[in-house]
Design a protein around this nucleic acid. Structure first.
Lengths: 330, 330
DNA sequence: CATCGTCATCGAAGCGCTTCGACGGCGGAG
DNA sequence: CTCCGCCGTCGAAGCGCTTCGATGACGATG
C-alpha cells in the first residue's frame, strides 16, 4: 500500500474480475460488446486496484500514444501571456479528449519533428506562430505526421490551418474608427522585426486595415518601450495633422500610447479614438478603457486540438478555419 | 521514401550494419563495450535509415520513458510571462538531457499525478507554484514519483525544493532603499488574493523586507489595475508622510506606479526611490529605469530539471536549493 | 430435432525494445 | 603449448498491452 497503483497490470485486473486480460482491454476500449455484468466487475476491479494502463505498452501495441505535441516558439516580439493561453487552452481541450500534451520549442526545428514522428512519441502535432515561409512546414508535409497549424504559411496546400481572421480584424478596427468620425487614421503595430520576419498575422492586419481606410491612413511599426512609443506618438500629428484615430496592434505598448496621447493633449474617447488588438486585460487596464479586438487564444487552441483529433480518427476537417474577430466596445 | 524514418526498427538497423539487434541497442545505450568498428557501422546505419527508437517500446522494456512532467498552474494573479519562462527553461534543459516535457495543468490535481505515475508515462515531475499547503504535495509523497518542487510547501520533509531566496530578495530591496537614505519605506505587493492563498514567495518577500526596515515600514497589497494602483499610491503619503522608498513586487503594476508617483510630484531616483522585484523588461520599460531583483525563472527551471535527472539516476541532491537574489542597479 | 447465427469471451501472437546469460575467439600467464 | 579470463557479440526472454481468430453457449430457424 506504500505505492498504490504501482505495477498494477491488466493481468491483475483480469484476475481480480475473473476474466481474461483481453476482456479487460475490450471493456476499457469498448471495441467489442461485453455483457453488462462483466463490464461492471471489470470496472470495479479497475477502481479497486487503481489501474492505469501502461502508456508505453499501449502505444507499442496500438500505435497510438495518447500524446499530442505542441511546438511553440519563444521569439522576440512574441507576447508571452498569449502563448501561455494557447498552451493552456490546448492542454485543457486535449485532456477533455484523454490526450496529453508534449511541449516542444520551435528551435528544435524540423529535426525535432522528425524525432517525435519517428519515435511514435506523439500522435499528432500543433504548430504555433507559423511564419509565412516556415522550414518546419515542409518537414511536416514530408513526414506525414497529422498536424494542425495555428497561423497560415504562404503555401498551405494540403495543410490544416486555424487562425483568427486578422484581415477582418484590421478591417473591423478601421471601420470602428471611421464610424466614430475619425478623419484620418493610423495603425500602430509591432516592432519592425515582426514584419521583417514576415509573421503572417501582422501583415494581414495591416492589409485589412489599409483596405478600409482612406488615402491618408498609415502604418507605424513601433517597439514597445516607453521611449520609442513616446517618440512615435509625437511623430504622428507631424506626419498627419488630421489624425484622430489610432488602432494599436502591440500589446505591451498600449499603456505607453495612452500616456503619450495624454501628454500630447489628446482626449481619448472624445476628440481622439483608440482601438486595441490584443487581450482584454490590456484594453481594460488603461484609463479610459478601450474598445478592443481579442485574439481568442484559448478558442483557437481548442479548435486546433479538436481538428487534430478528428484527423487522427480519420475524419476530415476544413483545410482553413478563420475565426471571426469580435470588437468589444467599452 | 515518401516518409523516411517511418517504421524503421532496430532490426532494420541491425540488418544494415550486419549485427544483432541487441548489439545496436548496446551501441546506442553504451551499456556494454563495443568495438569501435562495429559502433561506427551501426551509427552509419542509424544515420542512413534515420532511425529513432520507438518511444513506447523503449519505455516498456526499460521502464524509462524519457519524459518529464511539468505541472504548472494558471491561477489568478500569476504573471504569465514568468510561467512561460519557467516552461521554456525546463524544456530547454530537458532536451539537453535527451528528455521531453509533458505539460500538465494544476487543476488536474492529485488525480493527474496518480494517472501519469501509474501509467509510467513520465519518469519524474516538476511541480510549480507550490502553495504553503498544497494537496498535490501529499499525493506526491504517497506515489513515490521522483519530483522536484519549485517553491516551498509548509512541510518540505523528504521533498526536493528549489526556489529564489525570496526572503533575501525582500532584504536586498529594503537594504537598497535604506542605503539610498530613504527614511521610511514600504512594500507594494500583489493583490490580497495572492497572500490569502498563502503562496509561499509573497510571504517570504514580506518577511525579508520587514526584517530589514525600520518600525515605520509597511506592506501594501495592491491589485494591478491602474485605478487601484493610483489609489494605493495616493494613500501612501497620507499614511506615512516620511515615506521616500518603495519596493514593488507586482510586475504589471510597475508602470502604473511610476505614473502615479509622477502625478504625486515625486521625482524617482532623486527624492524618492523605487526598486522592483520582477523581470528585467518590466524595470527597463519605465522611465527612469529602475533597479530590480530578477526572478530567475529559467535558472530555477534548469536547476529543477538537473536535480530531477540526478534523482532519476539514483544520485542524491540537496533537499533545499535557494538561489541568491541579484540586485541590478540601473 | 438438427442447424445456423450471434454474442460474449478466451488464448495467443505480436508490437519494438532492453537485458541477461551464453558463447566463441583472442591474448597473456603458467 | 595449454588454460583461463576477458572482450565483443549473439539469441532469447520478456516488458504490458491490443487485436485477431477461435470457441462455447444459447436462442432462433427450418
Amino acid at each position: 500500500m506504500a505505492a498504490p497503483g504501482r505495477g498494477v497490470t491488466i493481468a491483475d485486473v483480469a484476475a481480480r474480475a475473473g476474466v481474461a486480460a483481453s476482456t479487460v482491454s475490450y471493456v476499457l476500449s469498448g471495441k467489442r460488446s461485453i455483457s453488462p455484468d462483466t463490464a461492471r466487475r471489470v470496472m470495479e476491479a479497475v477502481a479497486e486496484l487503481g489501474y492505469h494502463p501502461h502508456a508505453g505498452a499501449r502505444s507499442l501495441a496500438s500505435r497510438r500514444s495518447g500524446v499530442l505535441a505542441m511546438m511553440l516558439p519563444l521569439r522576440d516580439g512574441m507576447h508571452l501571456p498569449v502563448l501561455m493561453q494557447f498552451a493552456s487552452g490546448a492542454v485543457t481541450e486535449a485532456r477533455r479528449q484523454d490526450q496529453d500534451v508534449l511541449l516542444m520549442t520551435a528551435d528544435e526545428g524540423p529535426a525535432g519533428l522528425a524525432r517525435v514522428a519517428a519515435s511514435a512519441m506523439v500522435d499528432g502535432l500543433i504548430l504555433m506562430d507559423v511564419e509565412v515561409r516556415d522550414p518546419r512546414v515542409e518537414a511536416l508535409r514530408r513526414l506525414g505526421l497529422p498536424s494542425v497549424l495555428i497561423g497560415f504559411p504562404a503555401d498551405a496546400e494540403g495543410l490544416t490551418c486555424v487562425d483568427l481572421d486578422f484581415t477582418a480584424a484590421g478591417q473591423v478596427c478601421a471601420d470602428y474608427l471611421v464610424e466614430r468620425g475619425c478623419r484620418d487614421i493610423a495603425l500602430l503595430g509591432a516592432s519592425e522585426a515582426v514584419y521583417e520576419r514576415r509573421t503572417g498575422f501582422a501583415e494581414r492586419v495591416r492589409e485589412g486595415f489599409l483596405g478600409r481606410s482612406g488615402p491618408g491612413a498609415a502604418v507605424w511599426p513601433c517597439p514597445d518601450d516607453p521611449i520609442s512609443v513616446q517618440r512615435t506618438v509625437k511623430e504622428l500629428p507631424a506626419a498627419n495633422p488630421d489624425l484622430t484615430g489610432l488602432a494599436v496592434h502591440n500589446e505591451p505598448a498600449v499603456g505607453h500610447v495612452m500616456h503619450a496621447l495624454a501628454d500630447a493633449g489628446k482626449r481619448v474617447g472624445e476628440d481622439f479614438h483608440v482601438v486595441v488588438i490584443g487581450p482584454d486585460e490590456v484594453a481594460e487596464r488603461v484609463h479610459p478603457q478601450l474598445p478592443s479586438v481579442l485574439v481568442p487564444a484559448e478558442t483557437l487552441a481548442e479548435i486546433a486540438v479538436r481538428h487534430l483529433m478528428r484527423k487522427l480518427d480519420g475524419l476530415d476537417v476544413p483545410a482553413a478555419t478563420l475565426v471571426e474577430p469580435q470588437l468589444t466596445a467599452r
